[in-house]
Structures are given as C-alpha cells and as structure tokens.
Design a protein around this nucleic acid. Structure first.
Lengths: 350, 350
DNA sequence: GCGCGCCACTAGAGCGCGCTAGTGAAGCGA
DNA sequence: TCGCTTCACTAGCGCGCTCTAGTGGCGCGC
C-alpha cells in the first residue's frame, strides 16, 4: 500500500492527442523566455526582427496558437464583445454579419450567443458574461427592462432595435416615425385609405411602430380608418392575423403594414393561398428589409433599416462605454427608408 | 521631455464600474476559503447545506458570476464546443439551433463563430480554437480538406454536411443518394423526363448530390436527359442558372432539381418573373428544407435532412472523441426524405 | 574612465479559478 | 485510552498568459 505511487488521477487530458503547445513550449524550443514570445505575439516593441521571425517559425512548427482564455484572464481588458441574437430572426442575423467588420476594426473579438427556443435569453446572456465579454450587444432583446437595467449596472450594454425608458444602457435603433410615415405616405399616394397595421405586440420596436402608424394615419386625415390587428414578429403571427382578416366581417383592408418582415411573410402566405392577389387586392408592407424580404421571390415592400450603420454605431457605443469616455444612456437613432418592391401597388377599384 | 512620466498606458480598467466580484470576494464576505465557494459553485460534495445557502446568498448579494475564462483555464477540460456556421445559410442556422439542446444535455457550453463575407472560415475557426473550444463542429465548411485534416490532428473535429476523403475527423451528414433518388422518383412519377440539375459546384455536399442525381436519372433510363447546370449554393447561383436556361437554346426542362434551397429560390425567382408558371411549366425541387423553404409563401418541394438528429449525432461524436472512447474518422449518415410542397407538380403537355 | 540612454531580453507576480492533499474536530468501537 | 473514519473545510499550486520592473551589454559624449 505504498501511497507514494498512486497514479495521480489525471484524466485531465481529454483527447488522445498530444497536449496543445503553449507559449512555454515555443520559448523552450528557442531557448528564450516566455515573455519574449509573448511580446512577439502581441506585436509589441522590444524584440529584434530576427527574433520575431524565429519565434513565428517555431510557433508554426509546433502548431502553437495563443490561448484566448488565458489571455483574457491575464489581460485586464478582454477585448471581447458578447452578442446576443435570435437565431430565427433574419434581421438579427444580418446585424451579426454587420457587427463583425467594425468589431475587428476596433480590435474586438466577438462571442455570439443565440437565443433559441430551448434556451432563453437569460441563459444566453449568462453565457456571454461568463465568457468574459467586456460589453454586451443585445439584438432586439425581449427580456424585461429591469433585467436589462440590472445588466447595465454590471457592464456596458448596447441594445439594438428596442426602446427603453430609463435603463443605464446605450440604445441604437432607427426612427420609427419617418419609416412608418413613409409607408403610409407611399400607400396613400397609391390611393389606399384602408390601411391596417398588424402589430408586434410588445416585441422590440413594435409599440413604437404601432404608434408611428397611428400618427401617420392621423396626419393623413385617416384617423377613423386606423385598424390595428394583434400579431407578433413571427410568420405565425402574420398568418393568424391574415386568417382573422379573411374571416372577419370588416372586410379586407386594401393595404396592410406589418410590424416586421416575418409577420408580413405570414400575411403574404395566407393571402396568396386564399386567392387574394398581392398587390392587386391587398398591398403588403413589412419592416426591417431582412435578407428574406429581398429574396426576389418574396419581393416585399418594406422599410430598410441601415444595418451596417446600426452595427457600426452599436460597436462604437460599446467601445466608448468601455473606454469610459462617456456614461451609458445614449440613444442613437438612424433614418430608415422605404424600399418599394412588388407587394405594394395601387388598389383596384371595387 | 522627461520620459519618466510618460503616462503609463494603462487603459486597463475598462469601465467606470466597480470591478467584477470574484470568488475571493464571496469568500471574504463570509469569512471562508475560496475553495469552499468553489466547491459550492461546482455542486461538489463537501459543504453543508447551510453553508451552500449562505454562499449562494452572498454571491447573489455581490452579483458574483463565475468567470468562464478562469474556469476554463484552471480546469483541464473546458467543456466548450466551438461551432462554425455561415450566417447567411439558413440551414446552418437551423443546425445551430438544434445543437444547443444536446450540448446542454451533455454538459457542454457553446461558442459560436460565424463565417461572414468579411471574415473567412479560417479566422472564424481560429477564434473558436482561441476561445478554448475542446472540439469543433463545422457546419458545411468550405475550406480545403487538408486544412480540416490539419485541424483534426490538433483537436476533435466533427464536420456536418460535407464528405471528406481521409481527414482524421468525424463526419455527420445525410445520405445523398436516397434523397436525390426520391426527388427523381417523385418527378418521374409526376411524368417528368427532362429533369435538370443545378449543381453547387464544389460546395459541401454538392458533388455527392450531383452524382446521386446522375445515378438516379440513369436508373430511370434517363441517362441521355441528364443535364447539369453550373451553380452554387446561393440565390444568385440559382438566378444565373435560371437566366441561362431561359436564354439558352436547349429549351426549358420540365423540372429542375437544385443543389440547395437557396439556389432553388433563385431559380424560382427568375422563372416567376419571366412569367414561367411554377410548377405548371417547370417544377422546382430544392435540398435542405431550411426554414426558408418552409415559409409557405415559398412552399418549396425539397429534401429534408433530419436536422435534430444530425445535430445530436454531431455533439455526441464530439463528446466521444473527447472522452477518447474511439478514434476520429467515423462517418455517420442519416436518411433524408422528400418533402413535397407546391413547387412540384405534373408537367403540362406541350 | 564614468555616466547615461537604449536596446533586447528576463524574472516573477498575478489574472480567477479548479483541484489535490491535507487539517482539525467529532464520532465511534474496542 | 487509542486508532480509525467521516465530515466540513483550507492551503496552495498551477492553468497559459500579460505586464511591470527589472538586467546586462553596448555605444556615445565628455
């Protein structure tokens, strides 16, 4: 029972593969210090050109890749931004795509976390924080405002596409009024008067769009034609709203302005199946101009948000908060503009 | 020019916010050791129920959240799986959604990295490795096989939806033959004989689907009708192929089998715009059954891959490699099946 | 010769955590 | 009383890296 040579319980190496090489391995290979290797990899002054070359060569030879986790831990700043998005939302996917370039430009690494049906936003956010995100970019978060506020007190947070009353976070979004206004102008200009709105319930952006629709209608003297149908930001929401319109006894409006593209596509679907001609009988307008709307087979008239700039502003806002150049709480709004495609046209006389 | 008091470039404290609490803070708050707090947070035996409660209470009070980077570093196993996907590919997004549940079940955390136009797969993969992913799940990677092989020698890799000759990685994908076979059977059953294929070039899965199409045609005695048009896995690819067909002097086939859904949607688009009736004049079939195909407005006949099982198998394969219960190199294939929707129908006599 | 600045490089202390090997107290049987 | 467990908890090393505060050598001016 010689307890000396108990096998040290090291089932630590997960794979049969050889251990990942570390900085120390590279240093040993060259007979220099780890610090030198570190310098070289961080592209800092203090190493001669020849040494740099030798270090890179040795690293390549050994297959050494810097370990982020250790780097993050050691460095005060992690330079990691956490991005929360909803996998199913094409507009979010567009945003994620657009966030990468600016993040890279400002020297940030991105960690993505998707909210999916089986994994709610709270969990997704926790994962981001756990992975040492310095700041969070939340694409259209649906969690309670106080939760976001709470998060904002812990670390810099930038919310995209949702209005908040008083959370200590930055907000980057589009003006809803001009967009909705343009939609209504466009439809009225085509001759529509019965313009309904399928709203997005309490989903990010929805209340504002609803309000903007109402205002726009009012300013066209169409206050009495305001017709708001409950919906949400999914295809199903649009489908249900369309079924409701078909079954209801108010008759079909000549145009429907949906709270987002997915909802609009749901409308489109049910209407076309029911033999309703788009846009002859009903014009449909969405919101977001997600890449799905652009699919020319769908060809949805919609409101384009300036995704690249939204993304850029969001990353810059996070960066500013991180650098402490200003306190959180800024609200940045961009113009959005109507993109006329095939689902809107003049109403036919009845 | 007193070089002494150069401001030491310490932009280390990123935010004006107070430092994130650590385990030591929690321990100090209670007057216990860090190890105890660690035990409690890892849900390990060795702490009394009352102590556990006190620890959690103190942690909540301070807003302590375990730091992944440190945890990863300290632990041999990081329990993180890196997932590479293409943001623009809806099928990939479906896969990512499906990967979460199994990963969680097996105790893995996920780090996502998107390949986007401005950021190629190499970079995306590097980020994953850097963030200490223990294993990689690559959704339809387009990088060179040798690069994947190289990666496979460094850490466990599971490739989804692409065939590889001899890389030391696991492969999880669908049988292409039965799927393509079903497509051709279906179309032939409807009365089609002129069935073209718009291929996906060298994109993951494309060569196999092309081959499977050819075989299926041959077995129906339609070898002489085999017509393969160059394309790729994007909408644009489909559009170009459709334009080619419209402009070419071979005439339109009565049915087109596209290498993936996006490509099929491109076809759909150009054809409908050109006034070609779908499916009366041309039937169109896609591949993947991504959620876009399911959008009932598109209503694409397509081949459904069993995404939930693909995802589950992929995570399990990664887990098995990590546990070292088998060497890499397994290939798992699942059945896929035809989903008949509205874009396929009997050809009209001409 | 000395002092000085500069350059290339190094020593070593942490970053926040996990984990092994303990420690001391209590309990228990003989 | 002693030996032996068990329980609740602690000390302290090490994960791979960054970063501050050096060290030694060399060239230069006086």
């Amino acid at each position: 029972m010689t307890p000396q040579n108990l096998r040290q319980g090291n089932d630590r190496s997960p794979a049969p593969r050889s251990r990942k090489p570390t900085m120390a391995d590279v240093a040993a290979e060259l007979g220099v210090s780890r610090a030198l290797v570190s310098l070289v990899f961080r592209d800092q002054p203090g190493a001669s050109p020849e040494t740099r070359e030798r270090v890179f060569a040795a690293a390549a030879r050994l297959g050494y890749k810097p370990d982020m986790a250790a780097r993050l831990l050691a460095r005060g700043r992690s330079k990691v931004l956490g991005v929360l998005f909803t996998a199913r939302n094409p507009h979010h996917v567009d945003l994620v795509e657009a966030i990468y370039p600016t993040a890279e430009e400002l020297g940030y690494d991105l960690v993505l976390s998707a909210a999916v049906p089986s994994r709610d936003e709270h969990k997704a956010i926790e994962a981001l924080v756990g992975h040492r995100s310095e700041a969070l970019l939340l694409c259209g978060p649906t969690i309670a405002e106080e939760d976001i506020a709470d998060l904002g007190t812990r670390l810099p947070v930038v919310v995209l596409g949702r209005h908040l009353k008083c959370a200590p976070v930055d907000i980057v979004t589009s003006y809803d009024r001009p967009g909705a206004r343009e939609v209504v102008d466009h439809l009225v200009g085509l001759g529509h008067r019965d313009i309904a709105h399928v709203d997005g319930g309490s989903k990010p952006g929805a209340p504002e769009r609803r309000r903007a629709y109402r205002d726009a209608m009012r300013s066209h003297g169409l206050a009495d034609r305001v017709r708001i149908l409950p919906g949400n930001h999914t295809e199903e929401g649009g489908q249900e709203a369309a079924r409701g319109m078909l079954a209801g006894d108010e008759g079909l409006p000549t145009a429907v302005f949906a709270s987002n593209d997915q909802c609009a596509i749901g409308l489109l679907d049910v209407f076309t199946r029911a033999g309703v001609k788009i846009p002859e009988q009903v014009s449909i307008v969405g919101y977001d101009d997600s890449h799905i709307a652009g699919l020319s087979h769908i060809d949805l008239t919609t409101v384009r948000q300036d995704v690249p700039r939204l993304a850029r502003l969001a990353v810059e806002a996070a960066d500013e908060q991180l650098r402490g150049v200003r306190d959180p709480g800024a609200t940045l709004k961009l113009e959005s503009k109507l993109v006329v495609r095939g689902t809107s046209g003049p109403p036919t006389q009845r």
